[in-house]
């Protein structure tokens, strides 16, 4: 039973990480932007849920608010740094600090909480409803993104730009538009993840920093811009972390997980799946 329980906790943690990593894998994979401020879109989503005190309503609102903020960030700053990944890292790190301070100024340094709706309290057989909800939410988001990428023309364009930006442009695709939309969707998904996090624990201004490193590890281990890779890496990381934490403690779990990923990337630097991309070369 304990094993099943840890597996479940790990899977739901993996689901949250997956929601965070989904956006990153596309902005990093398609545009070569290392967006350190991605964690703060999480914060935007979490505080949206706090303000609304309604998780279900917060999901679409957080997607819209975080997405809009991502779009503004892309238009105002990031687009001036395309093709310079390391500069985007510095730039977005600065943005991340500013946003965190902004959150501290508006909502205060102490953690705040969101009251879970009555139908999400309790659980069956030791599995809390809230974590089941998170799992379902993440799977629904992956399914939606997967349909978007394969069935809709905007999604097809997104894959085309990711695989060969220059060829997409000479095929008549307005690549800047595609970049904007990708950023909007990626940031919006982080907002949704932020809402999900309020079901697991309290929300504070530095929430984003806890998750951004894990999310990047998932993106790199899964392979840039690879949906399948991100899904697998997220759940492996979540479950692994959960079990090691159960046997030892939280900090040792982090050490072990990082060590495993470092070892994996030594063997397979390109990640689980590879996209031959010219966007980053």
């Amino acid at each position: 039973m304990a094993v099943l329980n840890q597996l479940f906790i790990g899977a739901s943690m993996g689901a949250v990480l997956l929601l965070i990593a989904l956006g990153l894998t596309f902005t990093f994979g398609q545009m070569g932007v290392i967006n350190m401020a991605h964690g703060e879109f999480l914060l935007v989503g979490a505080y949206t849920a706090y303000l609304l005190q309604n998780v279900v309503l917060a999901l679409p609102v957080a997607f819209a608010v975080a997405g809009a903020l991502g779009l503004v960030l892309e238009r105002l700053l990031i687009r001036r740094f395309y093709g310079r990944p390391l500069d985007t890292l510095l730039l977005t790190f600065g943005v991340s600090l500013i946003l965190q301070q902004l959150a501290r100024d508006i909502f205060g340094a102490p953690n705040v909480g969101v009251t879970a709706p009555a139908w999400l309290t309790g659980g069956i057989g030791g599995f809390p409803y809230s974590r089941i909800f998170i799992l379902v939410l993440a799977l629904a988001c992956v399914a939606a993104i997967s349909l978007y990428l394969t069935r809709m023309k905007q999604g097809r364009r997104m894959r085309a730009v990711m695989q060969n930006r220059q060829l997409a442009a000479v095929s008549g695709v307005a690549t800047e538009r595609v970049d904007q939309l990708t950023f909007l969707i990626g940031s919006g998904l982080a907002g949704v993840a932020g809402v999900a996090l309020t079901l697991i624990g309290p929300v504070g201004p530095s929430l984003g920093t806890y998750y951004i490193v894990d999310a990047f590890l998932i993106v790199v281990a899964g392979g840039l811009g690879q949906l399948r890779g991100a899904v697998i890496a997220a759940f492996v990381l979540g479950v692994l972390n959960s079990f090691v934490e159960f046997w030892t403690d939280a900090s040792l779990a982090k050490v072990v997980v990082f060590a495993v990923i470092v070892a994996f990337l030594q063997l397979r630097p390109q990640g689980l799946f590879v996209l031959r991309s010219r966007a980053l070369t």
Binding site: K153, R156, R157, R159, A160, Q163, N164, Q166, L167, A168, V170, S171, G172, V173, A174, L275, R276
Partner: peptide, 29 residues
């Protein structure tokens, strides 16, 4: 969109899209 078509050197494609999707992306744009 004004009417220039360009085929770059080195038989470039979108490698992970199917042949049909390669053509469709362009058609839709």
């Amino acid at each position: 969109r004004l009417g220039l078509g360009y085929v770059p050197q080195g038989h470039e494609t979108f490698p992970q899209l199917t042949v049909a999707e390669n053509l469709q992306v362009t058609l839709e744009a």
